[in-house]
Simulated scan of single mutants.
Amino acid sequence: MKNYLITGAAGFIGMHTAKRLLEAGEQVVGIDNLNDYYDPALKHYRLSQLAPYQDFRFIKMDIADRAAMATLFAQEKFTHVIHLAAQAGVRYSIENPFAYIDSNLVGTMCVLEGCRHHPVEHLVYASSSSVYGMNAKVPFSETDQVDHPVSLYAATKKSNELMAYSYAKLYQIPATGLRFFTVYGPAGRPDMAPWLFTEAILKEQPIKLFNHGKMQRDFTYIDDIVEGVVRILQQPSQEVIPYNLFNIGNNQPIELDHFIKAIESACGKASKKIMLPMQAGDVERTYADIRKLEEFFDYKPTFSIEDGIKEFVDWYRAWSY
């Protein structure tokens, strides 16, 4: 049996990934600091979905706590690490920048040091499509230059990629970065559009459309994300420098109007709209080139926006009511 560490286990992607591994009979240790960036009740709900599995253990821990992380790695001797913990959100990085330095930079450093001193078979970590910034070329490819981030959040994620590459080279730590594209689904984050729009529509409140609604996002359903993570996890790079980087998205950007219509259909209600200018740090569109992921792992997303949104809205109704 493999021994997996998942950082951010009470997070959206972390919970779903842990559940998939536990269902496959693996052993998982999950850590999370359960901060209040959004309602911790949702994080506790996610953990409740993992509690029935005998091979799951949860430890409340901040990944930026050097001593605690060093002790954890020494005691557990993990075979695989899935590093998903991070301070999320583009707009919040303008309000509270030091939260991103502590979690995304110091925390990732603690994970890398743990893998250095207690070697693992594979470290898979979360990057973000935000690193592409205002890239005008579409679809976004892993070979594109990403040296001009438009938010501190994006800058920390690009920094994580550089940090992981240096540790792969210096210490032969097999490391793979995943640039996630707008992940959504049941138990998703309440600060993201699927939740915000669904909540507003069901409560007959107006929804805020930034950039006057002229936005596109490569929405990717959580089951498609987890499928990609699990496939990648089992096959670390065999190159001289054991490092790789993949986009993981739907490869099908959705116009905001199409997205809203899918939510209206699932809710059975029309929306009221407020048009607003572009927000600082935001980007007009995201679009994943996933040919590399397809070539390496035969990866193909399967969920349509209509099916995925219906799954989310059904879950949200049960959660809220």
Rank of each mutant, 00 (worst) to 15 (best):
Y92K: 07
V120K: 02
A10G: 14
E76N: 07
L123S: 08
S103H: 02
E121K: 10
G249N: 06
V313G: 13
M61Y: 00
E142N: 06
K43Y: 06
A99D: 15
Y184H: 12
R317T: 14
T176G: 03
T198N: 06
T176K: 00
G107K: 03
W315E: 08
G25S: 11
M215D: 07
A64M: 04
K2W: 01
D144A: 11
Y100M: 13
A88D: 05
T79M: 11
A193P: 04
Y221K: 05
V120A: 12
L22H: 06
A266I: 04
L276E: 09
Y53G: 10
H122S: 12
G14N: 12
V111N: 10
L72C: 01
F219N: 06
V226Q: 06
A70W: 00
R217L: 08
D147K: 03
D55L: 11
K137P: 09
P253V: 05
A70V: 03
L47W: 04
I274Q: 13
Q87C: 10
L196K: 14
P236N: 07
A288Q: 04
Q205G: 10
V131N: 01
S304F: 03
K203T: 13
M69I: 03
Y4R: 04
Y221V: 04
Y45M: 05
T220M: 03
M1T: 14
Y37A: 08
G25I: 05
G30Y: 08
K214P: 05
E311A: 15
P174T: 03
P206F: 09
L276N: 09
N247A: 02
Q238T: 14
F98P: 06
T143W: 04
T198I: 03
L112Y: 01
E284C: 10
V81R: 00
K272G: 04
G185C: 02
P139H: 06
V111D: 05
K157N: 01
R291C: 13
I94H: 08
C267R: 08
H258N: 10
A175L: 07
M192Y: 12
D65F: 06
Y38F: 14
A175G: 12
E113C: 02
Y316N: 11
S103G: 07
M134S: 15
N247P: 08
G308Q: 05
C110H: 03
D65A: 11
V90Q: 03
T143G: 08
S151I: 08
I260C: 06
Y53L: 13
C267E: 03
N250Y: 01
S151H: 11
T17E: 03
I6K: 03
I225S: 00
L245I: 01
L152V: 10
D282R: 02
P236H: 01
G11Y: 01
D62F: 00
D224A: 10
R116Q: 11
N247H: 02
A85E: 04
L50A: 12
D223G: 02
A200Q: 06
P277Q: 05
V106C: 11
E306Q: 13
Q205E: 14
Y4M: 07
E199M: 05
M192I: 06
F78P: 13
A200I: 04
R46N: 07
N247E: 03
A88Y: 01
D191N: 11
K300W: 09
L112R: 04
Y125Q: 10
T220N: 07
N96E: 12
V90M: 08
F303V: 15
R317V: 14
